[in-house]
Amino acid sequence: MTATVLTQIVNGLSLASILILIALGLAVIFGLLGVINLAHADLFMAGMYAVVLAQGVTGNFWFGVLAAPLIVGAIGFVVELGVVRWLRARPLDTLLATLGVGIVIREGVKLLFGAGYRQVANPLPGSIAIGPVAYPIYRLLLIAVTASILAGLAAWLYRTAPGLRLRAMLQDRETAAAYGIDPERASLVAFVVGAALAGLAGALMSPLVTVGPDVGIIYLARAFMVVVVGGVGSLLGLVGGGVIIGGGDTLAGYFLNPTIANAAVLVLAVVILRFRPGGLFR
């Protein structure tokens, strides 16, 4: 029983890692541009297909993990310059436009790869036994990679001048312009970085799921919950939100059943919002 719980905790933390990477992009884009990016799930999905492509061409999974943020970041670059920039002052229009961009990405993937499902081979199958418990190696790696990215990001945000600027802009975009910061440039950087993170998350997740054009949607809803629970303003909040949503979903799904788990996590998010509208960690 203990062994099962420990294994499920690793599973929960690996889901949490993925959700945190997706939520980071959502939060930065929302915080800086005021745009709720409904195409984010499809950028995540595009990251998975970047791995399908790279693995197909080179036979190497890790090449796909490197290529995904670059490819998806480039998509983000085009979307920001071509669509989002022109609509940002109109929230409802950006919502519709990003929804449309998502559909375009999904249909584009169907055109290029077909509508069928793909499987990405796990590059590190097998488990490590620590005491009586066997942990899947790939999931442990996933958690470690996310933790390193978060640690690097935290150091950048809190120890460097560009990081300080980003925090300042997240607090008040208008004031930041008075300090000489080009808001258009900052928006572009935020959107590209947010998209690249979604692509990376998709690439890392690809061996753990069946890859299909519609795979992103379910993660988008959960990632929004992470942002809602964690708040837009803080990195630590997003980590906490990710652990609560990802961990809660996995554990409840294992011990109860997946449908009840989804509902339970949703209820939890609503309850948290009722008592802490700014997020749990404000």
């Binding site: 300080l164 925090r167 607090q171 004031t175 300090y179």
Partner: peptide, 19 residues
């Protein structure tokens, strides 16, 4: 028009590097 959640030192530093 300070950044209320940043520290006093960070606000001053923003004045230096913002532009």
């Amino acid at each position: 028009t300070l950044f209320p959640e940043l520290t006093v030192a960070e606000n001053l530093y923003m004045g230096k590097v913002g532009h």
